[in-house]
């Protein structure tokens, strides 16, 4: 029962993040909302692991957290340098 209430609360937070992602004037607001949505997805997956009683779902949550982080850093690099870098070229400031 408690886990169901927690799941609903997380879904509400995700909805709020989506609202900010749609409303956000600047692209960085949108990226912030997407990052928050990803964090909440990690928590939702671990919650489903608790609900289903299967502990191996937690590996999915861990991998999702890593992918969320890598995607965030890649998009930030693209926003800042305009490119993700070419072969053999270093992006100097």
């Amino acid at each position: 029962m408690i886990l169901a209430a927690a799941a609903i609360a997380i879904l509400v937070t995700m909805l709020l993040a989506i609202v900010r992602a749609l409303l956000g004037p600047s692209i960085f607001d949108r990226m912030l909302a997407v990052n928050m949505f990803g964090t909440k997805t990690v928590m939702l997956i671990s919650l489903i692991a608790a609900l289903a009683g299967r502990a191996d779902y937690l590996d999915i949550a861990l991998v999702y957290a890593m992918i969320n982080f890598i995607a965030m850093i890649a998009v930030m690099k693209y926003f800042e340098y305009g490119t993700l870098g070419h072969d053999g070229e270093t992006t100097e400031e």
Binding site: T13, M14, L16, A17, M36, K40, M43
Partner: peptide, 10 residues
């Protein structure tokens, strides 16, 4: 706290 953060972000 998550919901509060969600409200705050809006």
């Amino acid at each position: 706290l998550g919901v509060i953060g969600g409200i705050g972000i809006n």
